[in-house]
Design a binder for these strands. Structure first.
Length: 591
DNA sequence: GCCGTTTTCGGCCCGACTGTTTTCAGTCG
């Protein structure tokens, strides 16, 4: 269970429902798992704090959430009141102890797992491993040597990477594989259209972590076979899981799964739409198609009556035929984008070309790897209009935080460099928000800075009240401009600290503070969900790389993806503003 | 268990691949 300080209990409850669905499925209960998963997904994406909804409107309020009816509402209420659900506990008690874990093994579904559990008394993953090693599985009816081998590999893969791949790793990896595939095809089959090879799935939606990398390509029948061969024989491939004419799955030597699908030109758009997902977005889209007397599949949009294809070459024409605005991949999470598209009310998402600067980076003055000049030079070559140099403040000893003297030296260097570079270099600092909420430099120093990026780097175990108080106090300080990595999470390693985001966002909005979207792949903080929520408070954001080296400066795209997933437009993001306007934003805060 | 411009009861996305089943069930996305 998550800590008491989890700001929204939505995720906690949706996880409980997902887990319950798994157990029900294992017990061969029909349909309920689907209903539970649907409810879980809607709760996960529900804009309001479910606990508040319950406090204000009771069970009635809960049933307003799509997919939540009488029964699930009862269970949620029970959970909120007592911390557990009697019925779920009972259900769990009847299933083998490791059921949830076992259900996560790919290739083994509920039916197979139940059969194995019953026949061989398998309760945990290590029991399963044991059954494989003693060859008890191949002797069961309906199983053979091959399925035993597949289970062995599935366990291995589970153990190697049952955690998901961070976006910052998956995206370069996918690009590498695609370019390797293209290089291979350029030699073997120059007639294939290489522009129609693209990554899809959660990667194309730029989700913060990715399960599998999915690649889609367009080719006719003759070329499809050649392409599949080129794919499975790439040197990066460690194991071929399956290989067919239109679909193959491989696992890279590094342990990540990659699927390649090949479709004919008339279906390319439909397939791209389908494989980009999300699953929930697609289910809803199919329902819309059905209501309009169409049938939608990965091969195209078809008239239900005549069976004739009416769209399929491009995603745009599919959405258009269904009476919808084109929906950017990052929005396809069934969080209201389909309703908005029907009303022509989608946001015009911020774009890479809109960004004019980077407001968070480090140099050798604190823990960065490069000199100030090198960072400036690189930023200028990226055609930025401005950057802020934000080395750590003095109490951040571990990161070589700057004493006031050192900072003054840095100011001199900034002044000197400003003469030889076109780009505006802002004096900044990533200033510690101390335990009591005060900032790590005296006011007369803070006053001299163009940008003060406030950050918490200590006391992660504080109570929600302490942490909220600490951050709110800092947000009330007129010298603080930006709240860096507001939740403090490290993806896959550290949960967000306990803090009441409602209060943080309120205080930030009241004081005109800017929320950072930190681009470091291990942070991506704020998360897309918190961005979406924060926007409701009328907050402005900045997308910042928090670079510690030159290559880090390129990580802007990861934060940009989260901003887009949070429905942000250019106007919501201050580092899209021209310098003159940006200066006004931060100056105003000091008045 | 949820839901309804076909329905308050009877459906619930749908097509490819795999393995061992000779005609299909299970799994995945």
């Amino acid at each position: 269970m998550k800590g008491v300080g989890e700001p929204l209990r939505n995720r906690e409850i949706s996880e409980l429902l997902y887990e319950t669905a798994d157990i029900m499925e294992f017990q061969q209960i029909e349909w309920k798992p689907r209903a539970y998963r649907r409810a879980a997904q809607n709760i996960e994406n529900f804009g309001e704090d479910i606990e508040k909804v319950y406090e204000k409107k009771g069970k009635k309020g809960l049933t307003k959430i799509p997919g939540v009816g009488e029964s699930i509402a009862d269970h949620i209420a029970e959970y909120l009141e007592t911390g557990k659900v009697e019925k779920f506990e009972e259900l769990k008690g009847r299933a083998p102890s490791g059921t949830t874990e076992l259900m996560e093994i790919r290739g083994l579904g509920a039916k197979t797992m139940k059969k194995l559990a019953d026949a061989l008394e398998i309760k945990t993953i290590s029991d399963l491993k044991d059954a494989v090693n003693t060859h008890r599985i191949r002797r069961l009816e309906g199983f053979g040597e091959k399925s035993e081998g597949n289970i062995a590999r599935a366990i291995e893969n589970y153990e190697k990477s049952h955690s998901r791949i961070p976006l910052g790793k998956a995206l370069p990896l996918a690009e590498e594989i695609i370019s390797a595939l293209k290089a291979e095809l350029r030699i073997r089959t120059p007639e294939i259209d290489l522009s129609k090879i693209i990554y899809t799935g959660s990667l194309r939606r730029l989700k913060e972590t990715i399960g599998d990398i999915d690649i889609l390509a367009e080719a006719d029948k003759v070329n499809a076979g050649k392409m599949m061969n080129a794919f499975v024989y790439l040197p990066e491939v460690g194991q071929v899981v399956s290989k067919g004419k239109t679909k193959s799955s491989v696992i890279l030597k590094e342990g990540f799964g990659i699927d390649l699908r090949i479709v004919p030109p008339e279906s390319y758009g439909a397939a791209l739409q389908y494989f980009t997902g999300s699953k929930e977005h697609n289910i809803e889209l199919r329902n819309i198609a059905l209501r309009e007397d169409y049938k939608l599949s990965e091969y195209g949009l078809y008239s239900k009556n005549s069976g004739e294809q009416v769209a399929g070459k491009s995603e745009e024409e599919i959405y258009r035929k269904l009476g919808l605005e084109y929906i950017e991949p990052e929005l396809r999470e069934n969080r209201g984008e389909l309703k908005a598209a029907a009303k022509n009310a989608l946001p015009k998402l911020v774009d890479a070309g809109d960004l004019r600067g980077d407001l968070h980076m480090h140099t050798k003055y604190s823990e960065g790897a490069e000199s100030l000049e090198t960072m400036v030079e690189k930023a200028e070559s990226m055609r930025y209009e401005y950057i802020a140099v934000t080395d750590h403040s003095r109490s951040q000893r571990i990161a070589n935080g700057m004493e006031i003297e050192t900072m003054k030296e840095q100011w001199e260097e900034i002044e000197k460099l400003s003469k030889s570079f076109r780009i505006k270099i802002l004096r900044g600092s990533e200033v510690e928000i101390l335990k009591d909420g005060s900032l790590d430099y005296p006011d007369e120093i803070l006053k001299e800075l163009d940008i003060v990026v406030g950050a918490v780097h200590s006391g992660f175990a504080s109570s929600e009240r302490e942490m909220t108080g600490r951050i709110v106090t800092a947000l009330e300080n007129k010298y603080l401009d930006i709240l860096a990595h507001p939740s403090g999470r490290l993806l896959g390693k550290r949960e967000a600290y306990a803090v009441n985001f409602g209060k943080v966002f309120e205080a930030a909005a009241a004081n005109g503070k800017v929320m950072e979207i930190n681009c470091q792949p291990s942070r991506l903080d704020l998360s897309d969900e918190l961005i979406f929520r924060a926007k409701d408070y009328g907050l402005k954001f900045c997308i910042s790389t928090d670079s510690h080296s030159v290559p880090d400066l390129a990580s802007m795209r990861y934060g940009l993806g989260q901003a887009r997933r949070g429905w942000l437009e250019k106007e919501d993001i201050v580092n899209t503003y021209p310098y003159s306007r940006l200066k006004e934003v931060f100056k105003k805060l000091r008045d």
